[in-house]
Structures are given as structure tokens and as C-alpha cells.
């Protein structure tokens, strides 16, 4: 194991200018665009989350029928809980994909050697957000149609779905990077994510219930503020922690 270095000839040295680093946001945008292009060609995450979302809502609809038939005071909270559970479980099937794909296809080394960690994180986060917003749009539309849900305050419901999605993505993108190198990825993603997402879910469900019940914006402001605070806290923590997770 002892190395030996033997000189063969002397070489003249030369020096060239050091190239500059890519602007962070441009590099992040490039990662996002690459992931979108890859996803549109492979449709791995897209198919998984959409199939899960559709089958969950259809199963709910077939099992329970239109919930409006037996309208009662608890109905909005039940509907909100069902909606968020469907979104959460569908998200679990696809949101880890951005990092898992890099590890499984063994392209992570090329990416590590080319892009700054923060650019990778932001690009993947943006991709996950786009995927989740698509999932939320499809799930909510199907949910409203198939379960005949009457959203009394659709503006507030949309704001809460957006705020909840931002929080969900802020929390799960870092976890996706952590589990990408593990052997039991799927189970680990759900196990690590759930404790982090529990507070988000409680607040999002309560706020969404108010929106479905048709209460005014003042009933949802508190939930929106908590979700915004949650998103900022998780996003900041993830940004600081990502370097340690991503680097070998």
C-alpha cells in the first residue's frame, strides 16, 4: 500500500484565468428545467402521483358517495381532512423522486461536480413545487366534482392549498435528499416526513374546513400566517442543512 512517485520529465507550467461561478438563480432554473424535461420523458413521478390521486379520490367517492347528502356541522372538517390526506399520500409517492432518480441513475456525481449545492436544492424544490401544485389542482378538482363538495370560500381554500403546498415542499425536499441514498427509500420518506408535516396538516385542515364551510377570510388568516411561518422556517433550515446532506 506504499505509494512511490517517480519523476519522468520536467514540464513547464502555465496559468489561465479562473472561470466565474454560475449565478445561483440561473443555475437553479437550469436544474428545474432539466428535471421537468426528464420527467416529461420518463413520467415516473407524474404517473405515480396522478394515479394515486385519482384512485384515492375515486375510492373515496365510491366508498362514501357524495358527502353532501348527509350534510352536518362536522362535514367541512371531514372533507378538509380527506382532501389533505389524499394530497399528502399522493405527494409521498412522488416528491422524493427528484433526488432518488439522481442516485438510482447514478447521475448525482456529475451533478455534484457541476452545480453548487444551493442551486441543486432550489432547482429540485421548484420542481417539487410544480409537481405538487399540479397534484393539488387535479386532486382538488376531482374531489370537488366526485364528492360534490361545495367550497363556500373558494379563494380562501385556494390560498390555503397554495400555502400548504409551499410548506409541504419546503419540508420534504430536504428529506428527499436525505433518503435518496438509503436502501428503503419509500418507507423512510414517509416516516421522516410525517412528524415534520403533522403541524402543517393540522393547521391546513382546520383552515380548509373554514374555507369549505364558507366562513370569511378572517377565519383563515391565522392558518395562513402559521403556514407562511412554517414555510419560511423549514425553507431556511433546509437551505442551511442541504450542503451537509448533499456533499459526500
Amino acid at each position: 500500500m506504499d505509494p512511490h512517485i517517480s519523476p519522468q520529465s520536467a514540464i513547464e507550467t502555465s496559468s489561465t484565468a479562473m472561470p466565474s461561478e454560475a449565478p445561483l438563480l440561473m443555475a437553479a432554473w437550469a436544474v428545474f428545467r432539466k428535471d421537468v424535461r426528464s420527467e416529461l420523458r420518463t413520467r415516473y413521478a407524474l404517473n405515480a402521483i396522478l394515479l394515486f390521486a385519482v384512485s384515492t379520490v375515486v375510492a373515496m367517492s365510491m366508498g362514501m358517495g357524495p358527502l353532501t347528502v348527509s350534510r352536518n356541522a362536522d362535514l367541512p372538517i371531514i372533507q378538509a381532512a380527506l382532501l389533505w390526506v389524499a394530497i399528502l399520500f399522493a405527494a409521498f409517492t412522488g416528491l422524493a423522486r427528484a433526488f432518488v432518480q439522481e442516485e438510482e441513475a447514478r447521475t448525482a456525481a456529475a451533478l455534484r461536480l457541476s452545480a453548487r449545492p444551493t442551486a441543486v436544492f432550489l432547482g429540485k424544490l421548484l420542481f417539487n413545487l410544480a409537481l405538487l401544485l399540479l397534484l393539488v389542482a387535479v386532486t382538488t378538482t376531482l374531489f370537488i366534482i366526485m364528492l360534490r363538495v361545495q367550497a363556500g370560500n373558494p379563494g380562501l381554500l385556494a390560498a390555503l392549498l397554495l400555502a400548504g403546498s409551499l410548506g409541504l415542499v419546503a419540508a420534504t425536499t430536504l428529506i428527499a435528499a436525505i433518503i435518496a441514498r438509503a436502501s428503503v427509500k419509500g418507507a423512510l420518506f414517509a416516516v421522516l416526513s410525517f412528524p415534520l408535516l403533522a403541524p402543517l396538516l393540522v393547521v391546513a385542515i382546520q383552515g380548509s374546513a373554514n374555507a369549505i364551510a364558507g366562513r370569511g377570510w378572517e377565519s383563515g388568516v391565522g392558518s395562513l400566517q402559521v403556514l407562511a411561518g412554517y414555510t419560511i422556517a423549514l425553507f431556511t433550515a433546509s437551505l442551511f442543512l442541504f450542503n451537509s446532506v448533499w456533499e459526500p
Binding site: S20, A22, P23, W29
Partner: peptide
């Protein structure tokens, strides 16, 4: 070409 364009973009080239 897409591969190279991507790696050029993340490197700021």
C-alpha cells in the same frame, strides 16, 4: 446536446 447545455448552464458557461 441537452446534457451539455444543462451542465454548461449550471456552471454559468
Amino acid at each position: 446536446l441537452e446534457n451539455l447545455a444543462f451542465f454548461a448552464a449550471v456552471r454559468g458557461i
